[in-house]
Amino acid sequence: MFSNRYIFIYSTILVIVVAIAITLTSLTLKPKQLENIRIEKMQNILKAANINADKNNAKKLYEQYITECFAVNIKGEKINNINAFNIDLEKEFKKNKVEQQLPVYVCTGKNSEKYYIIPIKGKGLWGPIWGYIGLCDDFNTIYGTFFDHQGETPGLGAEINTDKFQNNFKGKKIFDEKGEFTSVKVIKGGANPDDIHSVDAISGSTITSNGVSEMIKSCLSLYIEFFKNQRQKEICYDKQ
C-alpha cells in the first residue's frame, strides 16, 4: 500500500503543518490572554479592598483606587525602580530571603483612607492556592481578603473562593496586644467568634484550611518589619 518512505514524509509534513498552525494561533492570541490574566489580577486585588469589580470596569477601578504599588524587602525597606505588579511570587519565594522583592498595593478609599494589600501564595490539597489580604492602616486589622485555588475539591476546599468564607476574615487581627505577630488561623470544628485571631474552617477540607493558615502566616511574616516601620497611631474604622 504505502511505503515506509511515504509514511515518514507524510508524518513529517503533518507535524510541521500542525506545529505552524498551533504556534501561529498561540502567538496571535497570547497578548489577549495575558491581558485577561492582568485584569483578573486587578479584580482580585480590588476584592481584597472590598471593591467588587467585573472584568469591564476592573481596569478603571484599579487606576482609580490603587494609588500606589511598590515592592519592599524583608527588612521593610522600599525597593526602588521596579514594576511591582509583574512580580511573580513563586519565583521570589525560591530566592534567598534577603533578595526577595515583596509587592505591596496601596488602595486609597473615597475618604482618602488607606488600605494595604499584600499578595499571598501557598499550597492547598491539590495544587497552588493564592490570594490577597487587605490590611487597614494600623497594619493589624484585616479589611478584606481574596482567596482562589486551582483544583481543590468542589464543594469542599474549593469553597475558599466564596464570599461566605472570605468575609469571616474581616476585622480579625494579625498582631496580639503585645505586638507579637500571631497571624490568623483557620480552625477546624469552629473558632470562637470572639477570638480575633482565628476563623472557622470549611468542614471536610482540613488540608486546604491548613494550607490557607500556613499561607497567610508565612507570607505575612515576611512583611513584619515593613508593618512595624509603617505603623501609625490611626485606628481603622471597621465598617462591619
Binding site: V18, A21, I22, T25, S26, L29, K32, Q33, N36, I37, E40, K55
Partner: peptide, 18 residues
Amino acid sequence: IVAALVIIVDQFLKAYMY
C-alpha cells in the same frame, strides 16, 4: 489533528472567554 484543533479552541477560549 484533533489535538491541534483542541489546542486552537483552548487558546481562543483563554483569550476571549477567560
